[in-house]
Write a protein that binds this DNA or RNA. Structure first.
Lengths: 190, 190
DNA sequence: AATTTACGTCAGTGATGTTGACTTATTTGG
DNA sequence: CCAAATAAGTCAACATCACTGACGTAAATT
C-alpha cells in the first residue's frame, strides 16, 4: 500500500505524557473496526447462498440461542424498529427457518423457535464465528479468553449490561461482578 | 425481559468435554455483537448532527490518521467499492472536511487530507471511541490493554494482518511477532 | 367497557452497499 | 513513440437494511 506517515499536525504540544497511551487506544479503535469487519465476513458469505443478509443472521442466531423468544425481546436485543425486524422475520418464517407459536399464558405473544432447518443454518453460522474467535484467542495467549469477555462486556452501554448478562447467561468468573447472584430460572422453556 | 432458557435441543450427546468451551466462545460471539453495536453508537449520534453516517466517519478517520492517503488505499482499507466511497467522499470534500491534492510523483493520484474543520470533527469522534475503550480496558483489568489488542489483531483475516499492522503502526510488544522487524519508513510524507 | 399491550402492516424515505460500463488523465513499457 | 496499464471519476440501476408515522387487530388488564 505504501502509506504515508502521519506527521502529527494536530495537537502538537499538548500533554506528551498520555500521547503514547492515546496512540495505543486509537490502535484499539482501528483494530476493533477491522476485527468486526472480518468477524462478519465468514457468515456473510454463507448467508449470501441463502439470499440472506446480516439482519437475518442476527434474528436466526438469537432465536436459535433463546427458543421461545418473543418479538418484543428481539426488538430490545437488536435495537431496531418493528418494521425493520418484520421484513427479515417474515422471510425466515416463510422459508421455514423459524416457526412461531402463540404463548400459552398470553396468547397475544408470538413465541419464536428455529426449525430443524433453521437450527442447522444457525449452527453452521455460529461454527464459523466460534472458529475464528477460538483461533484468535489461542493466538492472543492463555488468558485472552476471560480477559476478552471482560473487555467486550465492559464495552456495552451501562444500561444494557445486565440485560446482556442474562441473555448470554455466562456464570462464574467469566464476567465481572454479577451484581446480583440470584438467577431466577424460568421453568416454561420450550 | 424474562427470557426462556435454552434447553439445548441440538448436539445433545456429542462431546461434552468442550461443550462448556463452546458456550464461552458463543458468549464471545454475542458480546462482540453488543460491544460493536455500542461502540458505534456514540459517534453515530455526533455524526447525525452533521448529516453524516458511519461511512463518512470511516473515511474521515482514516484520512485524518493517514494524511496523504490515496483513494485506492481507502478502498483497500474499507473494502467497499469505488462507487460507495465516491458518494461519501464527495460530500466530505464539498462540505470542506477533506481536501485533495495531486501527487507530486504521480499526478494521477489524488492525495487526501483533512482540513482543520475535518481534523476537529475527526478528533471529537475519536475521543468518544477512545473514552469508551479506555473505560472498558480499565474495568477489564490491568493487562486487558495488551491482551485486547492481540486478540483483535488475531481476529483479522490472515491476508490483511500485515497491511493493518502497517496502517495502525504500533510498535513494540503491542502486537505479536512483527514477522519482519524491518519497518522501512517512507520519507515522502505529506 | 375502556385502555393497554403485543404484534402486524402500509406507505414513504434515506443511508449504504452492490455491479457493470464508460471517460479522462497520466504513467509505463515494448 | 505509441499502446497498454493504472488512478480516479462518473452514470445508471438496484438491493439491503435501517428509519418515521400511522393504523389495525386481537388479547389482556383495569
Amino acid at each position: 500500500m505504501q502509506l504515508p506517515v502521519d506527521t502529527a499536525k494536530h495537537q502538537v504540544d499538548t500533554v506528551r505524557v498520555d500521547d503514547d497511551a492515546r496512540q495505543r487506544l486509537i490502535a484499539c479503535v482501528e483494530l476493533l473496526f477491522f476485527a468486526y469487519r472480518d468477524f462478519t465476513s465468514d457468515p456473510d458469505r454463507l448467508l449470501d447462498q441463502y439470499g440472506f443478509g446480516r439482519a437475518h443472521h442476527r434474528v436466526l442466531h438469537f432465536v436459535s440461542r433463546n427458543p421461545g423468544l418473543r418479538v418484543a425481546d428481539l426488538l430490545l436485543i437488536l435495537q431496531i424498529t418493528k418494521q425493520s425486524l418484520a421484513r427479515v422475520l417474515k422471510q425466515l418464517i416463510d422459508e421455514g427457518f423459524i416457526a412461531q407459536r402463540s404463548g400459552k399464558e398470553d396468547r397475544r405473544e408470538r413465541l419464536l423457535f428455529v426449525t430443524i432447518k433453521g437450527a442447522k443454518l444457525a449452527d453452521r453460522l455460529t461454527d464459523l464465528q466460534v472458529r475464528r474467535i477460538a483461533e484468535a484467542l489461542e493466538k492472543a495467549g492463555p488468558e485472552a479468553d476471560e480477559m476478552t469477555r471482560r473487555f467486550l462486556f465492559a464495552m456495552i452501554g451501562e444500561k444494557d449490561r445486565e440485560k446482556v448478562r442474562e441473555l448470554i447467561r455466562l456464570t462464574g468468573a467469566s464476567l465481572p461482578e454479577p451484581a446480583n447472584a440470584e438467577r431466577p430460572i424460568p421453568e416454561d422453556a420450550t
